[in-house]
Write a protein that binds this DNA or RNA. Structure first.
Length: 491
RNA sequence: GGUCGGUUGGCCGAGUGGCUAGGCAGCGGUCUGCAAAACCGCGUACGGCGGUUCGAAUCCGCCAUCGACCUCCA
């Protein structure tokens, strides 16, 4: 567990990571609201924190990773008015809200599996933690930072700000917030426009409502994260992650709620991933550039020139640093696709490299650079750059222009296993490989190409080209090597 | 309007006060019956204008521009 540095939004600095309990890390990440298909936007935090999860484990930490499923409490329009998102979707589709929740939870998990995102240790849902949330609300009332009005409970931001500082995470000043609140009229029953609901009264026409000390209702939009993160990770806990768009007000409110409940800040390290744009534009439903992951994998969106595999998407996202904005375009994705292919190809060549007594390549140097890159705030693009330096070495040895000894070969093997597969979580497409059918199939192709070798020996170029061209028409790429051939089937 | 963050070669995308990022595409070469792959070499970029400095793409100021957040959003 070396010196792992991570950027903390709270201090706006890179900090040395030190867990509360040596050897153990508690991490909470804001998961999806399950009222629609998972889209491109969901992939970035999932992959970013998957990378962090994997790297912490690689460093030897025992990690408890909690990622919630929000299935209640997020409102469609104004913060404290309008319908619950899940309930709204349920009405449109004429389904039980829990059917909506189940359907989109399933599809989210399926998409995450495709992206090779590891399942979190615990995946709690808001609707399954109503009792905990009621307790959290009660704690806020007891400490004097929340008040009840007409069967709803609101967080008293003004009172909180008079004692603690509201806005430490997002860098906002309370005065600015007042002057910038767009809609002072919608204050309604709240004491102040800045106050937010922690428990909301619900009339009988709401389907999703639960009994509470304040009557029937549902929890406010920030309550679940405070209740569930501290239930499973304690307080304070180590890392809280999420998209940059959640910084304000969601995470700011979580800090305030945590302080109100426990008397101290609930989280040591706040980590935020940047957002994704498409052709330089923000992704938005109204802009027509909202791409679901299924559409991306199938190539069925009008902005897509082709389908992109989940691994291509994963690699593309990892080629940018998690705190930088990332722009999706067909050109960029296709570049990533080709690069990834080259990387995988080199990895499969390591085992077959010719061993020499001496190495003319610097394997330990590459390893050190890779470690340094990841230790510096998860710099996956730098890591990948160094892995490509290694690719050059592998190819060069394979080409007979450099040599490698057995020790370096073993180190190289471990390096790529650790970094490509375990940490970056990239995996070659192995669908269909290894089955009895595909074995026989491969043998048939080998047979044809062996015939071609004979033709080549006889300088019968017309036969040799016919075999290659015919196979090419069927989607095979044939490459001659010094002592034989290679082939692959393009999907 | 407020807060914050960008602006890097054909495209994507790192980065540091002086030392080649990397990927993709392109060009030239080696290899090959041809091709593909691979290898070698090449392009010499940092929004604009000032300033600090022996030296700035990297620090400071101003301007331009883009974006995020300020309202549910990953």
């Amino acid at each position: 567990m070396g010196d792992f540095i991570i950027y903390n939004t709270l201090s706006r600095k890179k900090e040395l990571f030190k867990p509360i309990n040596p050897g153990h890390v508690g991490m909470y990440v804001c998961g999806p609201t399950v009222y629609g298909e998972a889209h491109l936007g969901h992939s970035r935090p999932a992959i970013t924190f998957d990378l962090l999860f994997r790297y912490l484990k690689y460093l030897g930490y025992k990690v408890r990773y909690v990622r919630n499923i929000t299935d209640v409490g997020h409102l469609v329009n104004d913060a404290d008015e309008g319908d619950d998102k899940v309930e709204g979707k349920a009405k449109v589709e004429e389904l039980e809200p829990m059917e909506i929740v189940q359907r989109y939870t399933n599809s989210y998990r399926r998409n995450m599996l495709q992206l090779n995102v590891l399942p979190p240790s615990i995946e709690p849902s808001a609707s399954g933690h109503i009792i905990e949330q009621i307790e959290t609300v009660q704690q806020m009332i007891n400490s004097g930072f929340a008040y009840e009005v007409n069967n709803s409970v609101y967080f008293d931001v003004e009172k909180y700000a008079s004692i603690h500082s509201y806005g430490i995470l997002s860098g906002r000043k309370i005065e600015d917030l007042y002057s910038n609140t767009r809609d002072l009229d919608s204050q309604g029953e709240k004491k102040s426009g800045l106050d937010f609901a922690v428990w909301k009264n619900a009339t009988p026409d709401h389907i999703m409502r639960w009994p509470s000390p304040w009557g029937y209702g549902f929890p406010g939009w920030h309550t679940e994260c405070t209740a569930m993160s501290t239930k499973y990770l304690g307080e304070p806990f180590d890392i809280h992650g999420g998209g940059l768009d959640l910084l304000f007000p969601h995470h700011e409110a979580e800090i305030a709620q945590g302080v109100a409940c426990f008397g101290h800040s609930p989280v040591n390290y706040w980590v935020h991933n940047n957002l994704i744009t498409i052709n330089g534009q923000k992704m938005g439903k109204s802009l027509g550039n909202f791409i679901n992951l299924d559409q991306l994998f199938a190539g069925t969106h009008q902005l897509l020139e082709k389908a992109y595999s989940p691994m291509c998407i994963r690699f593309f996202i990892l080629q940018a640093h998690y705190r930088s904005p990332l722009d999706f375009s067909n050109e960029a994705l296709q570049a990533a696709e080709k690069g990834l292919e080259r990387l995988f190809k080199a990895v499969t060549m390591i085992d077959g490299l010719k061993i020499s007594d001496q190495s003319t390549i610097d394997v330990p140097g590459v390893i050190e650079k890779c470690d340094n890159a990841m230790n510096d705030d998860l710099n996956s693009p730098i890591l990948i750059a160094h892995l490509f330096d290694g690719v050059k070495m592998i190819n060069s040895v394979n080409d007979g222009k450099s040599t490698i000894n057995s020790i370096d070969q073993a180190m190289l093997k471990k390096l790529y296993n650790d970094y490509v597969f375990d940490i970056l979580g990239l995996q070659p497409d192995i669908s269909g490989a290894g089955t009895e059918n595909s074995k026989v199939f491969g043998q048939v192709v080998d047979l044809l190409l062996n015939l071609r070798i004979v033709a080549k020996k006889n300088k019968d170029w017309s036969t040799s080209d016919k075999i290659r061209n015919s196979l090419a028409d069927l989607g095979f790429i044939v490459k001659d090597t010094k002592d034989g051939f290679e082939w692959e089937l393009k999907g």
